[in-house]
Simulated assay, not measured.
Amino acid sequence: MRRIRVAHVITRMCKGGAQENTFHTVRLANRERFEVDLISGYTAPGEPSMEDAVRAAGIEIVRVASLVRNPSPLRDLRAYGELTRIFAQRKYDIVHTHTSKAGYLGRIAAAKARVPIIVHTPHGHVFFGYFNAALTALYTMLERNVARKSDRLIELTRRGVEQHLAEGVGTAEQWTSIFSGIDLAPFTAAIEHRDATRTKLGIGRDDFVVGGVGRLEPVKGFSYFVQAAHIVAESLPNARFVLAGDGAERKSLESEAKSLGLRIQFLGIRDDVSELMAAMDVCVVPSLNEGMGRVILEAGAAGTPVVATNVGGIPEVLIETKTGLLVRPRDETGIASAVLSLAADPAQRERLGGAAREHAQQFSIARMVEQIESLYETLIREKRLDA
């Protein structure tokens, strides 16, 4: 049985769920069986990056400088050519692409280079919440076409698979679902530091902390978090709010939250997300579109109940009334009502938090990597690469 050469391709290694998923899949690969490379473009200046963590893990990034997130015909053509050359020279057995841009260019390059096995994980979809109708239609058409070059397509949840099939992307035989795993250890450890973290944030023992973590972009719905915060603040004098993350909407959100004064903190990009999660009484995930919602599992691993919107794959990782509460998207009143119900019922918060912590254990990164490599082995047998 020979070692199988695998390339993981992603546009950039900024901080995000898709990037963490890809990083851990490379980091925890079975090196006796797989020889794994990580291929990526550069993280944009000022963008929070995972590249230090990648280097610290001893992983070298194979650079494709022209691989960028935004559409750029000249750069995209160069990236296609560069990827094709790399795939052919390094003679990969498997090319596994991640996210839309790297997924499109990487798959057509892998097909051109005659890579035996092509796998793609979109990490969600762009069917709504990202672009206008014309661009969405164009990207959907491209996804339909390039799906034909894929041996397998991996979504994070069954609901994600159904949404792709409803848009005509791939066939049922091509699709499978493998969750995006999380590193449970730091969130479990953070529980012990809860009081110290709250003190550092200037939050009192009796304050009720409502938090959110994520990119401050329209699709993440944090405007509804801020609107809900105003409602909660009126009814709950000891309510405090924290938002960790950065993005295009930060300034507008800060302006919208101005009347809350010191009761809300915009923390920016943080390296202590696990501690922040444990310091919260409730974590709010107000997304308009979400592939899975890793932040829900991270909050759960820290024992923090979640209020989240019923979109995308979220209902598959949040068990309604058992590990958290679901609300409609774009509904600040619904968010506020759910938060206030938890504030009024400490026993329910404790019950939900305990169940969420137990539920999160089945979403470990080790289990995720096992499932991905099991899929590889199935494809290796189908293609008779060990013959």
Rank of each mutant, 00 (worst) to 15 (best):
A301S: 11
G261P: 05
M1K: 05
V369R: 05
R250H: 02
S255R: 10
V219I: 12
D37I: 03
A133P: 06
T157Q: 12
D151H: 15
A147H: 08
V68Y: 01
I4R: 00
H125E: 09
V68P: 12
A233I: 00
A44L: 07
Y92D: 09
N238I: 05
Y104G: 15
R2M: 08
M13T: 11
D345Q: 12
G354Y: 01
R158S: 14
R144D: 12
R144E: 09
T99K: 04
G247S: 09
E32K: 14
S150P: 11
R205I: 06
F225R: 13
L340A: 06
W175G: 13
L297I: 11
R12L: 03
T43S: 13
F225L: 14
G103R: 04
V54R: 06
L38G: 10
Y376Q: 13
R205M: 06
A110Q: 03
E51G: 09
G212Y: 01
E20I: 07
T11M: 00
L77F: 02
P186C: 05
A56D: 15
D195L: 13
D76Q: 12
S66H: 10
Q362I: 07
A239E: 01
R12Q: 12
L165T: 06
L138K: 05
V317N: 13
D183S: 13
F34S: 10
N310V: 02
D271I: 05
V115M: 06
S337R: 12
V36Q: 07
L165R: 04
Y130S: 13
F87Q: 02
T199Q: 14
R294Q: 15
S72Q: 03
L153Y: 03
R215K: 08
S287H: 03
E173D: 15
R198A: 11
Y130H: 14
S223N: 07
A113K: 00
A88S: 15
E192Q: 11
I86K: 08
W175T: 10
F34D: 09
A336T: 09
R158C: 03
L262T: 09
R31N: 07
L318W: 00
L236T: 07
L105N: 10
N145V: 05
V306R: 10
R250Q: 14
N289T: 07
D37A: 15
V213E: 06
T99N: 12
R27N: 15
V295P: 13
I61H: 06
A248G: 09
Q371P: 04
L340V: 01
I372G: 05
Q265V: 03
Y80I: 08
A355S: 14
V36P: 10
A133V: 04
G291Y: 00
D52K: 14
I117F: 03
K112V: 03
M13L: 13
N70C: 04
G16K: 06
A172D: 09
L216Y: 01
P48S: 11
V317D: 12
S150H: 01
N145I: 06
G160W: 00
N70T: 06
L38V: 05
L184P: 12
A387F: 02
K101V: 02
F208I: 08
R349V: 08
P286F: 01
A355M: 03
S337K: 14
F208P: 15
A134P: 03
K91L: 01
V6G: 00
R357F: 02
T157E: 11
L243W: 00
V273P: 07
V311M: 04
E373Q: 14
L138G: 05
R85A: 13
L77A: 15
P116T: 04
